[in-house]
């Protein structure tokens, strides 16, 4: 089975978010980048499936060379090879186009992604790739198993419940927990990752459908009003009369 896992390269979850150049650009200064946490669920599940059934796991990133340490990390966790589409990803559609082109070329059985990229919070690349390739997209899934060589069974979240779906290969799915337990690379993984193939390819097309014009930050909170634990009940009165939320 050939599995393609798409990873985005995002600011560490603890990063302070700032903007430069008249609030037109994200300030990368001092920011640590990590594999998008949701994508780790997809990556580990892909590796588990490969371990159980045999096959190959390719990781794919659409991004510039500064994403390579995290691509190597994905190889250290257990992917077999990697592809980087050498481009500044302009928006979700641009990224989806690149992923679809790589997927078409590689003939993958399954394309796994994260539920959402935690930088631009779009939650849309998976659906776009599914549509571009004309194959089903199952989002967001928290369970993925093979029923037989051609069919996968997934559980996806809907508001207030879940759906169990069976789809024929190939398909796209996005992962959320508890699909798998993300792994930390071990020493052997880190050593072998250095020599695993990482292919750099040039982008197809240059089309974006949106233009980011500026950024802003939410207003700061006015400060916290403390209530004595002895009179905890007063909180409820304040929530009704002052905050007017009850």
């Amino acid at each position: 089975m050939k599995i393609l896992v798409c990873i985005s390269n995002v600011p560490d979850t603890t990063s302070k978010i700032n903007f430069t150049g008249d609030n037109k650009e994200f300030d990368k200064n001092g920011v640590q980048f990590v594999i998008n946490p949701w994508d780790e669920y997809a990556l580990t599940r892909a590796i588990e499936l490969k371990e159980a059934k045999g096959g190959n796991v390719t990781v794919l990133n659409v991004g510039e060379a500064d994403a390579e340490p995290n691509i190597r990390k994905a190889l250290a966790i257990g992917a077999d090879d990697a592809i980087r589409v050498n481009a500044h990803p302009k928006d979700a559609f641009f990224v989806a186009q690149q992923i679809a082109a790589v997927a078409k070329e590689g003939g993958y059985d399954m394309i796994l992604m994260g539920k959402e990229s935690i930088d631009y919070n779009g939650s849309q690349v998976h659906g776009m790739v599914g549509e571009l390739l004309g194959i089903p997209s199952v989002v967001p899934a928290f369970k993925l198993d093979m029923v037989n060589d051609n069919t996968a069974r997934l559980e996806r979240e809907i508001e207030g419940g879940k759906e169990v779906v069976e789809v024929q290969l190939p398909f796209v799915a996005s992962a959320q927990q508890p699909m798998s337990e993300p792994r930390i690379p071990n020493m052997r993984g880190i050593m072998t990752a250095r020599t695993k193939p990482l292919k750099v390819v040039e982008p197809v097309g240059n089309e974006a459908k949106t233009a980011y014009t500026s950024f802003s930050k939410p207003e700061k909170k006015g400060g916290v009003r403390m209530i004595d634990a002895e009179n905890a009940g007063e909180l409820i009165t304040l929530l009704r009369n002052e905050a007017k939320v009850l």
């Binding site: 779009g122 939650s123 849309q124 659906g127 776009m128 549509e131 997209s137 989002v139 967001p140 459908k209």
Partner: peptide, 23 residues
């Protein structure tokens, strides 16, 4: 922006050749 909105919005955007903004 529900799970349904996200699942169909992205496919629809490609099918109608449109721009999509979520959230």
């Amino acid at each position: 922006n529900t799970n349904i909105g996200a699942a169909v919005g992205a496919r629809l955007a490609v099918r109608l050749n449109g721009s999509l903004a979520t959230n």
